[in-house]
Design a protein around this nucleic acid. Structure first.
Lengths: 107, 107
DNA sequence: TTTGTTTATCGTAATATTGCAATATAATAA
DNA sequence: TTATTATATTGCAATATTACGATAAACAAA
């Protein structure tokens, strides 16, 4: 095989795995890092910042956007991308749940 | 190509991406979920719990272990796997940093 | 209109991941 | 010793991801 058996798992498990997958590549972490250091941001800035070709960065941005980790608004010719705080909340809540359940554990 | 250009990014960016990658598959999320619902845990339990073959689960456990998300201690013939709270801390701290930097943002 | 600027998409090669049957290993029990 | 039990490893096929050149699309400026 090779395809992951996602239908065997719950919707919640697939959703959170999809969020983590979007963050599972150093280029996408670097994009998020960069978005956090600048006030406004356009894709071109990222192309100059990272050692990857423009189509590659566009592809990574698309994956972050599909996962709702960033959102982009059109500003004339450019696109202003920024972090979506709601999705950050969602991931933080997941860890809050883990932390809560860990409290009652031996290890 | 196809190999990710990890050498182009910082050690920190690669480290956090590796943690997220370990959590980027629904089966591994399900394993973490299951470890949080039982007090002690052995691999065989997980094989009975998830709709995947034993070698597949063993492989997923190995990836979680390599990423330090779980740790396993030998208990006779079986292995007792449990969550590593230190790694959960590490990921939570990363989101703490994101949250902190988001505070000073427009969006 | 044409030109330039910015971002997206297509096509494809290289590489990585997923899943499992078969088999191996390690420890215990008989 | 020979089972038995629990987990790991090997090998391979199917699929997914990554990266980028070429090209397209969308829009502004001249």
């Amino acid at each position: 095989m090779g395809a992951s058996k996602s239908e065997s798992f719950s919707v919640e498990q697939n959703e959170i795995a999809t969020l983590f997958k979007a963050l599972s590549h150093p280029a996408r972490i670097a994009i998020v890092d960069y978005l956090l250091t600048v006030d406004s941001c356009i894709c071109g800035d990222i192309v100059n910042e990272l050692p990857l070709a423009q189509p590659t960065i566009s592809q990574h941005l698309k994956e972050l956007k599909n996962a709702n980790i960033i959102k982009g608004t059109i500003e004339g010719t450019a696109i202003c991308y920024c972090i979506n705080p709601d999705t950050i909340d969602k991931i933080e809540n997941h860890f809050g749940m883990i932390r809560h359940k860990l409290k009652n554990k031996c290890c």
